[in-house]
Design a protein around this nucleic acid. Structure first.
Lengths: 262, 262
DNA sequence: CAGTGGTCTAGACCACTCC
DNA sequence: GAGTGGTCTAGACCACTGG
């Protein structure tokens, strides 16, 4: 017995050769799913930080007392969900929003011609306020709870193209400095990751067509009643916890929202 | 030697135990990728038809002279790409558009309240004509080549919600009967699958916001200049061959286009 | 060169479906 | 019970990265 990290896995027969695994106990799930859950916990707890190398498959197999193949299958799924990134010969790394690759995972707006690029940010407004009912519902908090509100315009070159409002739960992002936000020019998710250790894992977008009102037409430099793409996004971190509501208006005269169906 | 199906796999050492595989020959790819390609060929050729059971993993392993694990990994990927569907205890089946499950793979429009449902079709127009330049480019055919053109309105309950135009290459869907289309009420992809053995595997949608013109406002029963979601879809079959252009207008007053980012 | 993930095999047992 | 996909193991070798 090498002691230390044994970790309670639902795996009665830790015996010797071949068999073991998967009895039909009340709460059964495959071993690799349990391993996956344990690794996810370590990711969530910050045992390994974004961008860092996680232990090798062999090391994890030893730690959890399972075969390398089982760890591999667990990591395969985490990789498919973009929680980690595998690099042959180097190791497996915790996914991070601080990478060019990651920027476009949550930005589907592409220019009609030319290469995709990341837009410039311009903060219009940033403040704390009390959550309106609809926002609170989407964030799974109570109406009137403290939220951060950020309004910004994103531009490609000289053309303002995205007008968006972000709502972030005050409890989770406690201490978010308005000044910090105002001076920050990079991707918001990268900032939230480094400042609060909160990672956006998944998001759901509801899309409609709307008309530009006075405010939008002014900020986006388009005529009143220009058709705009309205994108209502709710973003989730580990454990399917909602941590952002983002309401965006896209000018789609020279850009389009691209989606792959498969 | 049990003769019959040996099938030329890039696998020099078909020797006995363990090793073999993966020499660094000019055109190298992993064994399971080669197996995947062979299975895909059989799917494409119609050796196994949509909805049918394909041979078991063990049978395929014997046929291709590889281990079951290798076949498994090949099928895993085909399953992830929705080309086949695995059913424990029963077998692996060729995916088909004749299933409730499959309907919503290519229809992301969801009602704001209530369960998703499949709309009723109303054909407005169906005819053969010569491909305009932009359609031809997207279908990878020549301007003026014969195409089928179908215009239809789809309604949820009493509310017309989708106005769309479909272009299908004449060469591929030769003999598509206008009468057949006019009387057909189900999903178009199911019809094309059964009538021509062509399966839609993947699609790319480019989305913008536009204003309803006179024609659209009439057919969709909305006011002139109502904002509409414009969805330009190109669909692909095996071998990434474009086989449909579909230009849709969605009324998003009581529905929204839902997209999951991950 | 050692260490990592990637591929491949062989064999075992489990869970599910159908006869 | 027989057959299918699903899980798990153990061990081998390959491809890639870096010191």
């Amino acid at each position: 017995m090498s002691s230390a990290h044994s970790s309670s896995i639902n795996n009665p027969a830790s015996s010797a050769t071949g068999s073991q695994s998967a009895t039909s106990s009340p709460t059964f799930s495959p071993l690799y799913q349990q391993i996956k859950a344990l690794i996810t916990q370590s990711l969530q707890s910050g045992e390994w930080r974004p961008g860092e190398l996680i232990p090798s498959e062999i090391e994890l197999a030893n730690r959890f007392k399972v075969s390398q193949g089982t760890v591999r299958k667990a990591i395969d799924e985490l990789s498919a969900e973009n929680l980690v990134v595998r690099r042959q010969g180097k190791g497996t790394f915790v996914a991070t929003h601080h990478e060019a690759r990651a920027q476009f995972r949550f930005l589907r707006l592409k220019p009609d011609v030319g290469e995709a690029q990341y837009p410039d940010n311009n903060i219009v407004e940033a403040k704390r306020l009390r959550a309106p009912a609809d926002i609170a519902r989407q964030l799974d908090i109570k109406t009137g709870d403290s939220v951060y509100f950020i309004k910004r315009v994103q531009s490609f070159g000289e053309a303002p193209t995205i007008l968006e409002e972000l709502w972030l739960p005050g409890v989770i992002f406690k201490g978010l400095s308005v000044e910090r936000v105002l001076e920050y020019k990079g991707p918001m998710y990268a900032l939230l990751e480094t400042e609060f250790g909160i990672q956006m894992i998944r998001a759901v977008e509801n899309i409609r067509a709307v008309l530009a009102d006075t405010s939008a037409s002014g900020l986006l430099a388009v005529e009143l009643n220009t058709p705009l793409l309205s994108v209502n996004r709710v973003s989730f971190t580990y454990g399917d916890k909602a941590v952002e509501v983002r309401r965006s208006l896209y000018v789609t005269n020279h850009h389009h929202y691209q989606n792959e169906l498969s």
